[in-house]
Design a protein around this nucleic acid. Structure first.
Lengths: 139, 139
DNA sequence: CTATGTGCAAATCTTTTGCAGGCTA
DNA sequence: TAGCCTGCAAAAGATTTGCACATAG
């Protein structure tokens, strides 16, 4: 891990009141270590961390992702009923989902317009608008 | 079950090559028997069918919903990682999801504009655009 | 009659939890 | 030191599957 990556991970974690433990720093490094946004599954992140040589249990990966979300560092994205995806980008934005590969990426905001929504059921207000653009391999 | 409901259920099932068994007709009656669109979970539909006095196993409800989807009679909607919702309306339309109640309904199409989407990843094309408007209780 | 469909229980898969021991502030 | 964390294994919940029996065409 480069000092830059470590720095970024600590800064990121520092935005919350979660303790910077070895496991959390290892996961944070994979999530935000290069300053790029990531979309991961628990399983995928676990594989990734093991590949670096660090050892973190799968249960801890699940608990940590959940903790990161609760702390407002990440958000969960629901695109596939069979597993959860977690996104380090916190603003409301559309996603591309490649169903064949099970791969999730950010989509440009341009092109998706959610204008004022009428007819919101009585007593409710909009919490969030999720847009998932499902892609299939062309041909 | 009214003759009208039975008729609608048979017609609906008839659009596929699935055999009109007792169980399928019972479920179809609950899904399209009154000509309205429905959003159900397997568990919820199972409860509903038991409430009518018919007896259908939960596994069969799951298998049947899956079969209806495969046959193009319904579609699965992914809004909550922990369970699947099934929608009898087949066109591409946005949904309201009341997170507190776990309740899913159709949203008016007006207000949501998906204009031409640029930057679709190389080799892919759009299969479907899912829009889920998550609602929270106001106040 | 033959291919499908059904029910049950068991298997699967993802995610959560209980608890004993470890580590951060 | 006190409280938060972690790991493991077991639990939990949703969904699928194997298999023997039932049924539609």
């Amino acid at each position: 891990m480069t000092p830059e990556t470590l720095e970024r991970s600590k800064t990121w974690l520092g935005q919350s009141d979660l303790r910077p433990t070895r496991q959390r720093l290892a996961l944070a490094a994979l999530l935000v270590g290069d300053g790029q946004d990531r979309h991961v599954t628990a399983e995928g992140l676990h594989d990734a961390v093991l590949a670096t040589g660090d050892k973190v249990s799968l249960a801890t990966v699940y608990n940590t992702l959940r903790a990161f979300c609760d702390a407002g560092l990440m958000q969960e994205v629901t695109v596939d009923g069979s597993r959860s995806y977690f996104d380090t980008r916190m603003d409301d934005h559309p996603h591309f989902y490649m169903e064949d590969a099970g791969h999730l990426t950010d989509a440009p905001r341009a092109g998706v317009d959610i204008t004022a929504l009428p007819d919101v059921p009585e007593g409710y207000e909009i919490a969030k608008v999720d847009v998932v653009i499902r892609l299939r391999r062309k041909g």
